[in-house]
Write a protein that binds this DNA or RNA. Structure first.
Lengths: 210, 210
DNA sequence: ATTGACGGTATACACATGTATACACAACGA
DNA sequence: TCGTTGTGTATACATGTGTATACCGTCAAT
């Protein structure tokens, strides 16, 4: 059973609560977690062998959240050139409503624990693959080869995750973060359409439109 | 005087030594640092008021390193469409030869301390500004408006810093990281040249070249 | 009805941590 | 020459930490 209940759930949720703002997963203490969860320190051992295992469980706990959030990304792809404004807004709103999970993900993706880094990386790559295959299936950018779509998807997932952190922390910049994200994605795909053109060819194209 | 000497320098260098691999700046302890530096724990107080101040000093210490490294980025920009392979290689080699500074930067940019995050962000933005103004001055991508060049520069600096971490940690992927970085940059700028075209116009352009 | 697992608790130990106070000594300007 | 300033040290204290051992109720299965 992968579903968390009782004390185990309490501990994981306590971890998420503690992390927001000024903490990181790897900095949490066993006693600290138990205290926040309202449990005896030793109860921790009933559920986790050590803090590393706890960290992995937390990642697992937020994994579905993240997945469902990233799944919304596909909508954005579906309309990247038209209604992308609304869909990017939607994705960021999702992250905004899950600040703890977002913070954990961003922080541990570049954090000190190689174990957690690898785990998160695998999750992000899986999401990126899903996003890419969806774009390919729907033939949204048929002028771009599949491998390139995968590459851009990986970059986009990471970019959005990182900007989501800014989005949460800097309410006054939310609109511009949104717009920058849209431009980022459009430029990647549009640029990729010209991958096999030479520099001079691209320049002449650009100038012919001025 | 901003130059570090004696015990203060020892402590900062001890911090950099400890951080590599599995630590973060904010996780370092006062006694731990003194131990690594071969000093008495209390000597720490002679140089720093608290650990936050220590963190800022470390950032200051690596700031010139980072700056000079990022300054090399301009070379890449100068030849982004031609010899970019060699220049990106050069930049990553630079990060590779400063693994501690790179690790600190990546880790604290998304780390738990808002103070350090803001400080690093300011440094990166300054570097991005420098890079952008250089590109503008040399008229390397004259088809792209200045504000867009600034925006892409900010994205690029962050992208390269994060990939530099991968570059250091995954020797077998170095070549592909390099190539992906080149494509990232080219696509951003090429895509930006088409910013004011509609989706259908871009598609017809792409198809006309197949 | 007994057993055993499960989740939770209490107490205790050895150790590390940040910090305060006080001491030592070299360099140097008055 | 004396006092001050800068740098380093020793000792000590309260607190927090991970962990070990042992105890206790609940509940399900035998």
């Amino acid at each position: 059973m992968n579903v968390l209940t009782g004390g185990k759930l309490k501990l994981v949720q306590a971890g998420l609560r503690l992390i927001t703002e000024t903490r990181s997963l790897t900095s949490l203490g066993l006693r600290e977690l138990a205290r926040e969860a309202g449990l005896n320190p030793n109860t921790f051992y009933r559920h986790f062998k050590n803090l590393d295992e706890f960290g992995l469980q937390v990642l697992g706990y937020i994994a579905e959240d993240m997945k469902s959030g990233v799944r919304e990304l596909r909508r954005m792809a579906a309309s990247s050139e038209q209604a992308s404004h609304d869909t990017v807004t939607f994705v960021y709103r999702y992250f905004q409503s899950n600040p703890a999970a977002t913070t954990v993900a961003v922080r541990e993706l570049h954090g000190p624990s190689p174990l957690l880094r690898r785990a998160l990386e695998a999750q992000l790559n899986a999401s990126a693959r899903e996003m890419a295959e969806d774009i390919i299936d729907r033939q949204l950018v048929s002028a771009v080869p599949p491998e390139t779509i995968h590459e851009i998807s990986r970059m986009t997932i990471r970019y959005i995750l990182i900007r989501a952190m800014d989005y949460i922390e800097k309410p006054e910049q939310r609109e511009s973060i949104q717009l920058e994200t849209e431009r980022f994605i459009n430029r990647q795909f549009r640029g990729a359409m010209l991958d096999n053109l030479s520099q001079t060819e691209v320049e002449s194209l650009a100038q012919s439109r001025v």
